[in-house]
């Protein structure tokens, strides 16, 4: 069956909330009905039909042909076995609270991408804004499952309060990567700056490029970790370069000893 396609007519003049176009919410609805869905976020009314041409198809496979950095909440609350693909950029909160499924964005994504993700595989071809996989203000935990692959760079505070799941950033990471980590794993292949793993409790951060980590991470020596071998195999298809880093002998820095301190930063030995 052909996919459900939203073709960009023109970029909207305001930010739009596309959570109403997640697969389960458009299933069984006619094109005319979908075109009338209100997606505006200001006083000026704007409907799906103003922004997209709608071509009905399998709601399990949704495609956006053309993106915009004003497209917020794409793939929000996505369910397992569904997929969303965007040819272009997206705005904030991509894949917010997704339960499963697969989201691919060829362009870049805004802030709070994968926030609250609980099981989706989210792949971003370009860069991603600040607070990747982080909780929104007032929430206690960040991403709780799934996997995020960023081919470009990430903004500040990537992986804030990560609880479970895997984040791979193939480019550089912004300030304070992996701040307040609860658990989970983050791999960065480019450079990372700022206080890496600040207040990390039980999380794992893998840095392809070693750098100074400050006094609260303590060198525990270089080891061949069985876990890293299994993790490398699991990452082989999504990020061969990340897999290559994990296949090596790794130096383990335990921390953040300013807090619980059962986490770690691994770098190639």
């Amino acid at each position: 069956m052909k996919p459900f396609v939203f073709t960009l007519r023109q970029e909207p003049a305001q930010r739009v909330d596309l959570s109403a176009l997640s697969p389960d919410r458009i299933a069984g609805r006619a094109a005319a009905e979908i075109e009338k869905i209100e997606i505006g976020t200001t006083k000026a009314a704007i409907k799906v039909g103003d922004v997209f041409g709608v071509s009905v198809g399998d709601p399990g496979v949704v495609r956006f042909e053309g993106g915009s950095s004003r497209f917020d909440l794409v793939g929000a609350k996505l369910l397992p076995d569904h997929s969303v693909h965007v040819d272009g950029d997206v705005g904030a909160q991509l894949g917010r609270l997704a339960k499963g499924g697969r989201i691919t964005v060829t362009g870049s994504a805004g802030a709070y991408a994968a926030s609250g993700n609980a099981g989706a595989l989210i792949e971003i071809g370009g860069n991603v804004g600040d607070f990747l996989a982080a909780p929104l203000a007032g929430e206690l935990g960040g991403m709780s499952g799934g996997r995020v692959i960023v081919r470009g760079n990430a903004g500040a505070r990537a992986g804030d309060r990560l609880r479970r799941g895997v984040i791979v950033i193939e480019g550089d990471a912004g300030e304070d990567l992996g701040s307040r980590l609860i658990a989970g794993s983050i791999v960065v292949l480019g450079a990372a700056k700022g206080r890496i793993g600040y207040l990390n409790r039980r999380g794992t951060i893998v840095l392809a490029n070693a750098r100074d980590l400050g006094p609260t991470y303590i060198d525990c020596g270089a080891h061949i970790l069985t876990f890293a071998g299994l993790f490398a195999r699991s990452l082989r298809t999504d990020s061969p370069r990340a897999a290559a880093v994990l296949s090596r002998k790794l130096r383990r820095y335990g921390g953040d000893t300013a807090v619980y301190g059962k986490g770690e930063i691994l770098t190639p030995a």
Binding site: V166, L230, F231
Partner: peptide, 20 residues
């Protein structure tokens, strides 16, 4: 000990004298 969930399977890393 540290827990890791990889591809939906949970594993435990238990520190022992030859590594983990």
């Amino acid at each position: 000990q540290m827990s890791k969930v990889v591809d939906g399977r949970r594993f435990w890393r238990v520190p022992v004298m030859d590594g983990e």
